[in-house]
Design a protein around this nucleic acid. Structure first.
Lengths: 242, 242
DNA sequence: ACAAAAGTGTTTTTTTTACACCCATGT
DNA sequence: ACATGGGTGTAAAAAAAACACTTTTGT
């Protein structure tokens, strides 16, 4: 099994029988104010393809897998190169291995998805070939990346409905209303503030600070802090995975 | 493919090494009567390693990835080779890519998990190098396959708690009590028959036949049939994934 | 003083759980 | 007829949703 795997696959007419290429890609989510309403919405960074196939189209940030990196490390590197940020949350999404995902060579992409905080650093990274887009209503992307983004969105929403991962899209401290806004932005529906507050207070890994957010128009809300592991998924995985 | 942003990272020392090997493995679950109690329990087939590393230890069935096969097809082939059965349910589990999973070469395993029906065919397939084991309390397996089985078990239990996938471990028709037994075996706790019945009746994709299971000691229970797609997960995935 | 969001309390509704009870069949 | 699992009914408990109301700040 784990050695000479490709020995038996020797009779197809393809050139040289090179094994499928392995790539790592990452769907990176961050919160940014909508241009129109100003309310926070989901955005993700894409990179422009500078060669064929799909030259000129936008695609998920990705790259080859280095021998010295674990899959997760590769995705984190990927993320840092694109956004300049360290991931606040990083999880494997899926291994996409359809036969004709790439028109030329067969490519198997192990895709991760991540959440990062909306720092100014994210803005600074924008260039002609790296740009942020709203997560919904994307134009046609390269390869099967539209499907991948859809799946990542589905997973994000799913985890958010029963799981406490919304904090990973926020900064160090945050108000409960901000958490609620994340839910409303991601799940695309309104949430009752009173009930939401109670639910959050029941969940673990969230701790009240003794500070309040100043500068608002009204009564200053208390700030809270997330105390769980930076990259821990409170609902969705076994102890440890390599 | 998407190596644009990685042009700079290409000068590491280990350059000319062969790329990581790609393997497909499958965790196959089936229901079999326990030796002791006779009640249905979870079993899975393992194959004995006939070469180093881990020669002699038991491992998950796995094999190379043919160029002409999609990942899912490769897993299905895998499954047929080991059990002689067609999968009743097949889903990608995870891509394991830790650096030192295999002592010799670096191997990235894309692992699927499956459910098959407890047919006699399964028994016939047993040989000296293929054997079924109880899913819990496995001995030490080759590579990181213990972890992988644990994760697959976790996923199976998770999907079963909110999702209707138990049918895939049963035959064409089944009684509601049999479905309940599956739940009890997998989740390892008792379930109230009355409430369980009601919950099932609410879910879709389950249809009453006009037949009854004869030959029992008591009142013959009605037989039901699963009407969903053979391989569809009613809770856990987007439309289609390649 | 007033508007508006922060935060608390209470009621209503829905879902889950527990369990009493009748039904049908083999022995 | 009786023991046993199949199947139905119903009430208690818990969780979720709806909504009235009080508090605190900026203007």
């Amino acid at each position: 099994m784990e050695r000479s795997i490709f020995a038996s696959a020797a009779n197809v007419s393809e050139r040289l029988e090179q094994p499928p290429a392995l790539a790592i890609s990452t769907v990176i989510f961050a919160l940014r104010p909508s241009e129109s309403s100003g309310r926070p919405t989901l955005w993700l960074p894409l990179v422009r393809r500078i060669r064929e196939p799909f030259k000129g189209l936008w695609a998920l940030p990705g790259g080859p897998l280095m021998q010295s990196q674990s899959l997760q490390d590769a995705a984190a590197t990927n993320l840092a190169d694109t956004t300049g940020l360290a991931p606040n949350y990083l999880e494997q999404l899926y291994a996409f291995g359809g036969l004709h995902r790439s028109p030329s060579q067969r490519v198997i992409s192990i895709v991760y998805w991540a959440m990062v905080q909306p720092t100014e650093a994210a803005l600074a990274q924008e260039s002609d070939n790296v740009r942020w887009f709203r997560a919904d209503g994307l134009a046609e992307l390269a390869f099967d990346h539209n499907q991948i983004v859809d799946y990542a969105l589905w997973r994000l929403r799913n985890k958010m409905t029963y799981g406490s991962i919304a904090y990973h899209l926020l900064g160090e401290t945050f108000t409960l209303a901000q958490v609620r806004e994340v839910y409303e932005a991601v799940l695309n529906r309104t949430v009752d503030p009173a009930n939401f507050r109670r639910q959050l207070k029941q969940t673990a890994h969230i701790e009240a600070t003794d500070e309040f957010l100043q500068g608002g128009k009204h009564r200053p809300p208390r700030l809270y802090r997330y105390t769980g592991e930076p990259n821990a998924e409170n609902s969705g995985s076994p102890p440890s995975i390599s």
